[in-house]
Nucleic acid binder design. Sequence first.
DNA 1: AAAAGCTAGGCAAACGTTTGCCTAGCTTTT
DNA 2: AAAAGCTAGGCAAACGTTTGCCTAGCTTTT
Lengths: 340, 340
Amino acid sequence: MKKNIPTLKQIAENLELSVSTISRALNNNGSISDLTKKKVIEEAKRLNYVPNIIAKNFRDKRTKTIGVIVPNLMHSFTGTILKGILLETERIKYKTIICETNDNIEKEKELLNRMLEFGVDGILMSLSKFTTNLSPLLKVLEKKPIILFDKASDKIPCTQIVTNEVKGAFNAVEHLINIGKKRIAIIKEKQGSFNSEKRFIGYLKALDQYRYPLDETLIFDVSNTTIEEGELLGEYIVNLKEKPDAIFCITDSLAIGIIKTLNKYNIVIPIEIAVVGFSNSDSSRVIKPNLTTIKQSGYKIGKLAVKQLIEEMRSEKDFFSSKSIEVNTKLIVRESTFVL
Amino acid sequence: MKKNIPTLKQIAENLELSVSTISRALNNNGSISDLTKKKVIEEAKRLNYVPNIIAKNFRDKRTKTIGVIVPNLMHSFTGTILKGILLETERIKYKTIICETNDNIEKEKELLNRMLEFGVDGILMSLSKFTTNLSPLLKVLEKKPIILFDKASDKIPCTQIVTNEVKGAFNAVEHLINIGKKRIAIIKEKQGSFNSEKRFIGYLKALDQYRYPLDETLIFDVSNTTIEEGELLGEYIVNLKEKPDAIFCITDSLAIGIIKTLNKYNIVIPIEIAVVGFSNSDSSRVIKPNLTTIKQSGYKIGKLAVKQLIEEMRSEKDFFSSKSIEVNTKLIVRESTFVL
DNA sequence: AAAAGCTAGGCAAACGTTTGCCTAGCTTTT
DNA sequence: AAAAGCTAGGCAAACGTTTGCCTAGCTTTT
């Protein structure tokens, strides 16, 4: 379908004025008489004129677009962050291009370059599970600002907006200590991701601070933080002679899997074994007993990430930075640890 | 930070060739000798040249961008559709701008116009709950193609890609009939949304086909399809003298709420009351008993929507259409209806 | 009344790319 | 040997917008 899309030129011709006058009238800059302004605005409306954003971008040498790269859009915490990002970018009239890596490192690298080609002004990014090769990131960082959020890395010299993982995990374990638990286990990732490692540190810190001895047999590793892996590991745990009396799972999914198995073997939660998760997912209120968990403010992280990015885009400095903003968490106590 | 971003002109000067030759060499069109091509490519690599996508867009008068408008990014079915959309757009090297309306009609209207300003080539859209004023949509449709998905409307003259809601609901109810249930209730939305209405039709159709009498007292309305509303309505239902022996809920959330309340009153599912949901959400496998539900292929819908949009963008015709593509569902039988 | 200042709007260039048309100087055909 | 064809690359325009600089023709100041 061929459309005759109205341009400034068209309006100018209809009104027998110059293109620059039209531009100035519509953008309200330069000295244009009120009468002319009025006529221009009317004619623009009559023609259904919409400024050609592509031309404007071209002239301004920027797209007012930011790129967002996440491993998995459907991960519930990521979803909350995206909501924060969208709300904030929309407020400042920026566009947001979202991509998924599915934790595929090759794809991550490709998307990073694709973002440059797409002409984004900056990038918000949550790293794939095991991003090891940092050079693609560093290369992009020479041209455009990048802010890492949630799944970050201490090794990349750019601003990071993350949950205070250590403190969150600390609070979770402290809570288990407070309700009188003695043998507190942790389930973490085998190949420590950023989040897993930090949460593990929080676990260790809490034990240390409360003079709990570190018991290696209470540290469990899984390769995937899914419900199924939780269930499977649960089978192993219920068969131990010396069971833990509390389990801190680094994700809600793992915790749900564990609870499912404990339920199956009629182990009473939280009396026999208490369970804590991390994330406050939707399902944490569906599982029976309801799951005690750590609530992270994804919304806040998203919003901060955008603000920070805009700031760096406007700055005249280069984009290397070691700034790290940590957002606090909140312990949500539910049935899985609630004892009178 | 001021950057000296390399352009075709720069390469041309360094190599003492014309800009057009550089363009042709890099894009491999026009007749350029292999030697020249090689030199150009080398120099481009040396300068770290990235084509200026903004200029390219400007010249081509298109952005290779599609806009996606959804009510809520975090709704799990929407998430699956978005994944389908992202995978497909990425494959064809298109960008995707995603926005959320939060079921706010004003915002929906604004975003629609924002999309035009953003210069998208086409729009994929899932309607807000109660979009009544169709004129903003029609206005956009005069300029750019729109494809509606999931939350569609029979009243809008554009292509729609939706779940076969009627058939899905029909299968759900048919399944309840097959397991011997006699008093089959439905929980739907008070102010019928597109999906709610269609699912209700499926319910009616199944009753009709199996000669079940229509019992108005078995039709329940809620104003929100949340877990909480399900729980609340559950309280009402368990107190009825004449209870249903099966409940078809038009969403998984409602079904989960119902199950929670039934569990609370120790009503045995599915013997006393069977429950079916719609969507196959994550939580449907977390609730105990696991929920029987209707699986929709969001991935397929997303992919189809993109394909259809691209087709319409390329077409020379106008963008009005009454095409409707329905994607089939699958009944997933779990504990909440499973009887031997 | 001459000079200075102001108001309203025009001219033209620039952003980086692609492409239709052109042509010099070969090579091949008759 | 003249004509035709081909190869490799150049010229210049175009996309729509914004903006620095300019100026005609007023009005105000001295």
